[in-house]
Every structure is written in structure tokens, then in C-alpha cells.
Amino acid sequence: MAKRISLVTIFVLFNMGIGRMFQESLGASCFSELSILAITSFFFWNSSARQIKKLGAKWLLTSSGRNLFIQGGLGLSVSALNIIIGQLLVIVLMTQVYQCTSPSFSMLNASLTNNIGVNLLCYFTLLFYFIHIDKKDPEAEEEMEGTERPHRVSVSKRGLQFLLEPQQIVYVETSNNCVVLHTEKGKFVKYQSLKSFSNELCSKSFRRVHRSYLVNAAFVEHIQKNHSGDGRLYLSTGDQIRFSRTYQEEVRQI
């Protein structure tokens, strides 16, 4: 957001400088008018940024020449809208508040004082900025997912090897020196402790609710708690598992 505001500010100041030179060429400099146009442009472009981002996603410049033509038309339309809004505000303020004549009441002068070329350049700069951000975001998400994405769980049953996605596991319970994975496809056994399996799973959707149970929060439909603080979790699969008050903080996060 800070970069976007900086970009808009640069173009607003640039446009203000060009407008100042144009007014001096007419011999009718009006700093109040330039200030009004600058403030209007600053808020206009920042408030339009979200819509420009949507337009950029819909018609990417790199897709085809036709899309470039469409973006050019959109840029001209948005720039003209900014000029019209700014000039209307100038006319109202200069005649009603400051009670003086503005050197750019005509639309021709308005397009030069509030330069349409600079506005168009501002539009395309914001467009390229958002396209650049959108290209970077998926990579950043993949990096994040790469560090947080839980690995598939390797299990065997009847001599066959299976790879389970963590979201397929409904809950896990301990049984002697192994853990039993309850899934919608059936039960699978792994010979390891519940704690080590939980660490291996690395998924935020699983909660340790009992010394003997690890539950996938996505399958929990409702919770029944008794006076002692213990209770039961009712799952969408029809299963019921106990939870202990020792793990009440984990239960609250479900």
C-alpha cells in the first residue's frame, strides 16, 4: 500500500508541475486551482486502485494486443473521469469559495492543466504495479505452503502401501505402541507414539484433545462439556471421542 501511495504521489506532483508551467505560459497562474486538482487526483487514484487491480486481472496486458487496446481505452476513460471530477470541483470552489476566475474553465485548458497524458501514465503504472504484485504473490504463497504444508502420511494395509492426505484423517487414537488412524476409507495402523505422529503431521487443523486422541477439527460438529471440564466431541462421521480438561485450550481452538 505504501508503494502505491508513493507512486500516486509522484505522478500527482509531476502533474502539478506541468500544470504550473502551462498556467505560466497563459500568464494566469493559480496555485489554489493546482492544489485542488492535486488533492482530487491523489484521492481519486488511491480510491480507484482496487478497481484498477480487478481490471488488470481481467484483461492482462500480456495476453494479447486486443487486451492492450482495451486497457488503453479504460485508461483514457478513467483519466478523463479524474479530470472531469477535478475540474468540476475547481469550478465550484473557485466561484463559490474563493470567488475568483480560474484560468482553466474550458475543457481544453483543463486537459492541459490536469494533464491527461500524465493521468494515463499513472493508470498504466498502477496497472503494471498490480500485475507485478499478483505475479509475486503466488510464488510467496507457494513458499509459505512449502514450509507449512503437511506431508502425506504413508501407511500400509494388507500388504498395500497408501499415501493419505492429512485432511482425510478424521481422528487418531493410541493403541498400545501404535496409533490408529481413523479415516472415511477405514482404519490404518502406524507403529509410533501419538506425540511423534502429531509432530510429523505438521497440520494446524489437528488438535490434541486427550492423551489418547488427536482430532481433525474440520470433522467436529459440536462439543458437549460436563461439570468437571471433560466431555465429548461429536464428529460429522458419527463418531464420538472424549476430551480431557487438561487439553481444554486445544478444545477451545476447534
Rank of each mutant, 00 (worst) to 15 (best):
A2K: 14
I5L: 13
S6M: 13
V8I: 08
T9K: 01
L13K: 05
F14N: 07
N15C: 04
G17V: 05
G19Y: 06
Q23H: 01
Q23S: 09
F31C: 09
E33D: 06
E33P: 02
L34E: 02
L37Q: 14
L37E: 14
F44V: 08
F44L: 04
N46K: 03
A49Q: 10
K53C: 15
L55C: 14
K58Y: 10
G65R: 12
F69Y: 07
I70R: 03
L74H: 13
G75L: 01
I84L: 12
I84Q: 13
L88A: 15
V97P: 05
Q99N: 09
F105V: 10
S106Y: 10
M107T: 04
L108A: 12
L112K: 15
G117T: 04
G117Y: 01
N119C: 06
L120E: 14
H132W: 15
K135S: 15
P138D: 08
G146Q: 08
R149I: 12
S154Q: 13
F162Q: 05
P166E: 05
N176S: 13
C178E: 12
V180N: 03
L194E: 00
F197I: 01
S198I: 03
N199A: 14
N199P: 00
K204V: 12
S205H: 04
V209N: 00
V209K: 00
V215Y: 03
A217F: 06
E221N: 02
D230H: 04
G231A: 03
G238R: 00
Q240E: 15
